[in-house]
Design a protein around this nucleic acid. Structure first.
Lengths: 226, 226
DNA sequence: ACAGAAGTCGAGGTAGCCCTCAAGTTCGTT
DNA sequence: AACGAACTTGAGGGCTACCTCGACTTCTGT
């Protein structure tokens, strides 16, 4: 017990120089491979591309998730910042549209981030940490735009999950051959979210737990190895 | 050469009774497993569920695609019929909405059909055969609705691919936990397609070849074994 | 310059899936 | 009843991926 306390208090002495070099190479390789293949890309491919043996990868990142987190903290922070930036904007509709566009831009051409954003790897600690905060900000963006009559009143923040999922597959399909196609889909979605002339929607919105469960289910029986 | 002509002219003598039973069991098992796991489900799992050895599966369906086709001809025909039915309807918008809803219903709760519809398995002979026809009918449905001023003039039939892709991931995510959620997304999309709400879209539509290539790319490096 | 801590290597065990094929079984017919 | 064709079986070889661990190499402080 006390020894666990010690290890969890992360002394974190600096890495040896060669080790640091290898670690950096691994992160670089993982970034490019996760982006093109998704989070379930073979780790051996990453090690190979980094010019390092598989054992070294495992020493630096004992689980796949450790590697994923090392790579995506940055993008997650950008996500949060976009949300904050949106809330700082004057026009509520502009803010809403800006936020969705930023989010989709982050997702575009990065299958790894898509997997993360749609939570195909729900056990990412970095997600767990950020999720609540992102959710709160998203809700405020949506509700503000609704208060001002810009976004239709019958949608909820949970409906943004639909956009994320949709965008995931669309950008997967088109990123090679028609890399801007997702913007067209986003344009359609934005029109759909506009308050003006909205028709009643057929189903009640998802409940927050349902969204969470749905996201988790995308990862079930998939590679959640770590 | 002449022997090939013979084999290709499918004498098709009836199967032995036990063989037929096994074949049926395989089709049943495949139907349920492809529906829940997608077209890349392990064939050994299908054989197991059918209560049959793996060799028997291969004797009946030498390639995965043979099995896929045996299962999905029916659904593909339904797809076509829905399109024809739509073209028979009086109201062009109703027809458009009807067609999209039928298509999404076919996709819902069937990962296998999703894979097929988004062409994650592009080499399906049944797809190749049907593709052109479906495309033609879809185009007529869209264009008629546009002529009557119901659907915005700046979309094309290629944009339906966006709906298919989007729906694919959404129904994958929600089919367990919130099985009607896709209807909400479809509702949003229908509003987006309405002429009345249209704001100019940011990108030109995809060209038909681009759609094809994008669909094919979903299957690349995936299990196109057969 | 050297000791030893820190890091690296990669063969090898495990596992899931693909597909084949030779030996054995079942069916339908005569 | 018995024969041959049709069918079934499942072990086995090949592949790819995961992850571990003991032998080896490299760095760094003294």
């Amino acid at each position: 017990m006390s020894s666990e306390e010690l290890t969890s208090t992360k002394a974190a002495r600096p890495l040896r120089r060669d080790a640091q070099r290898n670690r950096d190479a691994l992160v670089d390789a993982a970034r490019s491979i996760f982006a093109s293949e998704g989070l379930d890309a073979p780790l051996e491919q990453i090690a190979r591309q980094a010019g390092v043996a598989i054992g070294t990868l495992y020493r630096n990142f004992p689980t796949r998730m450790d590697l994923v987190e090392a790579i995506f903290v940055g993008k997650l922070r950008t996500w949060l910042e976009s949300a904050e930036q949106a809330l700082d904007m004057d026009d509520a509709w502009e803010a809403f549209a800006f936020y969705l566009e930023k989010l989709c831009e982050l997702q575009a051409h990065d299958r790894g981030f898509n997997d993360l954003a749609s939570m195909r790897f729900p056990h990412a600690a970095c997600m767990e940490r950020t999720q609540g905060h992102i959710n709160e900000l998203s809700r405020r963006i949506v509700e503000r735009a609704q208060r001002e009559g810009a976004v239709r009143p019958d949608v909820t923040v949970e409906d943004l999950a639909l956009v994320i999922w949709a965008h995931t597959r669309i950008s997967e399909a088109t990123s090679e051959v028609c890399p801007a196609a997702w913007r067209r889909h986003l344009g359609l979605m934005l029109d759909a979210f506009r308050a003006a002339r909205a028709r009643p929607l057929p189903e009640p919105p998802m409940r927050p737990e349902e969204v969470y469960q749905a996201m988790v289910s995308l990862g079930d029986s998939s590679t959640c190895t770590g």
